[in-house]
Nucleic acid binder design. Structure first.
Lengths: 209, 209
DNA sequence: TAGATTGTTAATCGATTAACAATC
DNA sequence: TAGATTGTTAATCGATTAACAATC
């Protein structure tokens, strides 16, 4: 019976992937869980346990071959599939995401931008022409898009999610600070920027007591 | 002996705070953990347990007085202190954060923007003039800034963090996808956008197996 | 009073850490 | 072989869920 994988563990795999790429660029062909842990402030046991959830990737007494482990983690995370993504809502946040370099480094490919505002439809952001949200379904299909980020105001988030689901996306990355409902076979990740900021506020105010 | 509070619990308090404000706007003066849970897809027990970490805020047999609970959670999270914040690095992401409306709704006040690029220093974003990062320390002090967001490239994040710590900020909100090191009395929250996206990728690729 | 709902104690579940055998 | 390091089993820790007494 295979153990269920927590989102926390998946999040750490992303950290490993990034650190391993840096290590490889520096010429490290072999890396131990000890070394990797030092780069990330994560215990070596935690790292080995996380990897063990998916298989045996290391050499006892030696460590991990950097390039091979990068490839393995890339496979686990699906990064080697180079999924196509879209952004719906090209306001400040959507525009910033469109220009975010780090996604490309992970293998994602931004291939569509949508908005409903006629003043921005047709303009080019990061080499991509902004499309009318009315054409969402046909473009999601023709460009084979499996992931969409929602960066529209709270009031519009659910209806955009419905459109995306109907168009056939597999995963929704929701930046609107509101609960959205999707069918059980559609994956949803909520990115709530207010949480991190409020956590800081809490920690600071606690100090002063 | 008071129990230690997890970041997950703090994150949920933010959700409660937001949902309660919406409920209040709709005229609900009293709300039960059952009702609140339905709004957020969180079990009523989880909600009561989270609140119980900080005190007794409800009325048995009745529920919670919406306005009072908003105030109590605001106090716990320090939102009622209306902390001043700064953003260092006014690129795409920093600029988007500067324009992000939801922070104000939580009580935070953006009072400074910093960059090192002479081409943007002096220009106005969201009514705030961008300052030279060279003047960071004096401005952090004069404007009583306790929280700073780091939205600079990976290679500059640590040196900016050092500057901020030296200037006396209490909390750092790091968007650069790299480990930064701060003294133990400075609070650090890492906001790693790649994690959410990679989690979606993982979930989708897992389906296809 | 009866019904509703909180707050708390106990039970369960899941994730992290410790210990160590396997082996390069 | 001796030293190093992985992968796994057992122990611990923490968070969530269940059960229920308290009380409005």
């Amino acid at each position: 019976m295979k153990p269920t994988i927590s989102r926390a563990a998946i999040g750490r795999l992303v950290l490993y992937f990034r650190a391993l790429n840096l290590a490889q660029e520096k010429g490290m062909q072999i890396i131990s869980s000890e070394d990797l842990g030092k780069l990330l402030d994560i215990t070596p046991v935690q790292i080995r346990k996380d990897l063990a959830l998916f298989g045996q990737f290391g050499m006892k007494g030696i460590g991990y071959f950097t390039g091979e482990l990068i490839n393995q983690i890339g496979n686990i995370l699906g990064l080697n599939d180079h999924l196509n993504m879209a952004i719906v809502g090209v306001g400040h946040l959507g525009g910033a995401l469109a220009n975010y370099k780090n996604f490309e480094a992970l293998g994602f490919k931004l291939v569509a931008l949508f908005d409903k505002d006629v003043r921005v439809i047709g303009s080019i952001v990061h080499n991509i022409k902004i499309s009318d949200v009315k054409n969402l379904k046909s473009i999601i299909n023709s460009r084979n898009i499996s992931i969409a980020a929602i960066t529209v105001p709270v009031g519009e988030a659910q209806s955009i999610a419905d459109l995306l689901v109907d168009a056939g996306v597999k995963g929704i990355w929701n930046f609107a600070p509101t609960k959205i409902i999707v069918p059980p076979d559609i994956h949803l990740v909520n990115e709530d920027l207010s949480m991190g900021l409020s956590t800081l506020s809490y920690l600071i105010s606690k100090d002063q007591m």
